[in-house]
Structures are given as structure tokens and as C-alpha cells.
Write a protein that binds this DNA or RNA. Structure first.
Lengths: 143, 143
DNA sequence: ACGATATAGTTGACTTGTTCAACTATATGC
DNA sequence: GCATATAGTTGAACAAGTCAACTATATCGT
């Protein structure tokens, strides 16, 4: 039988540090006029279009009332289009418009740039190591 | 010269997944009556007491006005004590009261429990692997 | 030592984010 | 076909977060 306490503490310490790092990586959003939630929603639509609002809720933990309002704002601002689902009349299918793609691409590029700067401080060997570590943790925790 | 794009994408995917996982681990807070920010602030005071408000800001990225209000609420509710710093009269030093320790311990125990359940699904070997990979990433990114 | 500048923290006004329950519409199961 | 479940919307209420102005104290440069 194993003592799990050191691992628990290590994970919680990692979580605090990693939360801070993610906050740093996302800080470019402040200047973009979009919130983290909005950027995440745009990403989901981009990555899985066409999607319904419930598809998004499945991916991100977010209140459906709140999501509905964000999506409405996106629609009013011309970032997304809604069309009724042919198979289920309760649902709308959401797609990015050209303007939506433009906004997404700009946010996406900025996010890539942030990550690029972060890993830019690492040597090639360290980058390989990081890559392996990330893959290993993902396999263990995101089954 | 290396192509960094795959690593960038892997990191961003990891960030999305890990954000969701952290959200899950923190969801017990909903029932506790404390927000994530409040729990994090309590942790900082617990871990580094006595601390000033600026010490906390250095650790967590948080608006000083917002922090000031949270700390005031903690003080009114008897979770922390403030005393003027002997070396700098602008600062107060914060410490947990007995009641504050009680609250912190209960939040801390619940957080440990959440993490414990998460790693409980892993074998001993997987736990070791997780431990090593977490340590490796920490060494690379949290220098 | 003195004035200029910076830092610690507080406060109030304001904006935004988030929750929640009620509601409409449609779909699914018995 | 009726009961129940799901998709999404809305408005009201509340919580969270931002911001700038302000007081008090400390520090820096001359």
C-alpha cells in the first residue's frame, strides 16, 4: 500500500502554478476585447462546426443561460450564424461567419504567439522533454 | 531549426483539458460557500503567514481593490487578523485566526480528497509516472 | 533635509459575469 | 397520446471584478 499524500501535494502545487501560467498565457485577451469564456466558445465553434449550444456545454462547463447570451451577442455582432438543425427543431447549428473566422484567427494567432514565447526559452532537448511529459500526463488524466 | 507548431498545439490542447480538470477538482468549493479566489487567498495566508496584501498579489494575479474587499470580509467574519507591520506602516500583516484555520483546513481536506479520488483510478505505476512527469514539467516551466 | 515619486491599501461607483427559475418549443419513452 | 426530458431564451437578481481617486507612508535623488 502506497502513501499518496506526496503526490496529492505535488499535484495541488502544480495546479496552482499551472493556473498562474495559463492566466499569463491568456492575458493577451485583455487587449482583444474578448473574455476567456468568449474565446473558448469561439474555439469550440471553430473546432467542431457546425455545433449546437449543448455541444459547447458538453465541452466547457458553462451555464446554458449565460451561453445563450454570449451566442446572441456573437450573432448580433456577426461572428456566428445560427440555422435550425434539420434533425432536431429544438436545436440551432452554429457556424463561424467570415468575420467570426477573422476574429478567431486573430485570437488564435495571439495565443500561439504567447505559447511560442514561453517555449522559446527552452532548448530543443527541453522542448522534446516537455512534449513527452505533456503526452504522458494527458494519457494518464484525460482518458 | 525546429518546427515548434506541433508542441504549441499540444500545449494549447493540454491547457484546455487541464483547465477543465482543475474546474472539476475545484467544484467542491460550490458547496463550501467560498469562491475559488477566496480559497486561493486563504491558502496564501495559510502558507506564508504573516503576509501583506501585496505579498498575496505577487502570488495570485488579482486586483488590489478586489483583494482589499475580500480581506475585509475575512476580517469581519473572523477568519483573519490584521496587525500593522512593524517595519512599514503602510502594510498590514495578515494571519489566520483559529476560525480561519478551521475553514482553511476544511477546504484543504476537501481539495485533497478530490485529488485523491482522481489519482485513485491510477495504478501505482501510473501514479509514479504522473509524479515524474509533473516534476519534469514543473522544472521546465516554473523556473 | 526636502520635494518628487512610488508603493500599500481603502473606498465607492460602475461594469461585467454568472446564476437561477420560469417559460416555449420540440422530442422521446411508456 | 400523455408524461417526461431536452434545447434554448429571457429577465431578474446577485456576485465578481475593474477602475480611479484618495490617504498614508516610504524611498530616491539632489
Amino acid at each position: 500500500m502506497k502513501n499518496e499524500t506526496p503526490l496529492i501535494q505535488a499535484i495541488r502545487s502544480f495546479n496552482r502554478n499551472y493556473t498562474k501560467l495559463i492566466g499569463l498565457l491568456d492575458s493577451h485577451l485583455l487587449a482583444s476585447g474578448y473574455s476567456l469564456a468568449e474565446a473558448r466558445i469561439l474555439y469550440e465553434i471553430h473546432a467542431n462546426m457546425p455545433v449546437s449550444a449543448s455541444d459547447i456545454i458538453l465541452q466547457i462547463d458553462i451555464d446554458k443561460g449565460y451561453l445563450s447570451k454570449v451566442l446572441k451577442r456573437f450573432e448580433v455582432n456577426g461572428l456566428i450564424a445560427k440555422e435550425p438543425s434539420p434533425v432536431d427543431a429544438r436545436m440551432s447549428l452554429l457556424t463561424l461567419t467570415a468575420a467570426g473566422h477573422t476574429v478567431f484567427n486573430s485570437l488564435d494567432a495571439a495565443s500561439n504567439q504567447q505559447v511560442k514565447e514561453m517555449i522559446g526559452k527552452l532548448t530543443d532537448e527541453e522542448q522534446d522533454k516537455l512534449s513527452n511529459n505533456i503526452a504522458a500526463i494527458s494519457a494518464l488524466l484525460f482518458k
